[in-house]
Every structure is written in C-alpha cells, then in structure tokens.
Amino acid sequence: MLLRDIAHLRTGDKGDVSQISVIAFSTEDYALLESEVTVERLLDHLPNISVRHAHRYELPNLGALNFVLEGALTGGVTRSLALDAHGKSLGAQLLDLPVGDAQNLSVMDKAV
C-alpha cells in the first residue's frame, strides 16, 4: 500500500519553511499515519532536500499530521534559485511512500 491510498496532502510555504499536511481519507487510518509517516521516513524519501530542522505536529481530531521543514526552500520563495521556489511540488513526492503491508515488505526486502 502507498500513502496515496490512505491519505491526501497539501504543501505550503512560509519564508524558508516548507509545510506539508498529510491527512487520512478515513480517520480510522490515522493511527497508521501516526506510526509510519515519521519525520525520519519523510526525510529518507526526499534525500535531496536539505532541512535545518524538521518537526511533526499531530492532529488526531482531524486525522492529520503537519510537517514543518525549516530551511527546506533554499532561502525561501523570494530569493531561491530553485525552479519551484515555493516547494509546492514537494509534498506530492510523498504519495508513493510505502505504508502498511508494503512498508513491512520493503523492510523485509532490505533485510534479505
């Protein structure tokens, strides 16, 4: 299973901070998000961003996580040299993050 099967997301920016919300389609899947979509796994999945500090806010009421990635926008939208200076295309790259059984399988693959 991939993240896009159980969750949707939106990316925002504030200065040099990229912010990605990850929201369960069904609140029953929130627990899975909380246990598997960690800061560490997010950064592993996006190795080519440099982040000064990353934090995950948890919103169980809304079935959502909010990731705040400080320093992810190479200076921020007003001065970055990046093609996508807002980093709006960042979050969508998490949609194929393996979760649930697929995540366990990929961990097993690595072990083999």
Binding site: K14, Q19, S21, I23, Y57, N61, A64, N66, V68
Partner: peptide, 26 residues
C-alpha cells in the same frame, strides 16, 4: 482540511495581530 492546514506551522498557535488561533479543535 487541506486548506485549514495550508501554510500553518503550529496548528495550535496561529499567530495574528488580533489573536493566537488554535485550529486543532476544528
């Protein structure tokens, strides 16, 4: 839900000149 969290850092403390808003109980 996507727009509630759009460009939000700490959802329990969205600082504006008029108030510090808390969206976590929406």
């Amino acid at each position: 839900k996507e727009q509630l969290l759009y460009e939000i850092l700490d959802p329990s403390c969205y600082l504006q000149a008029d108030v510090a808003a808390d969206f976590t109980t929406a």
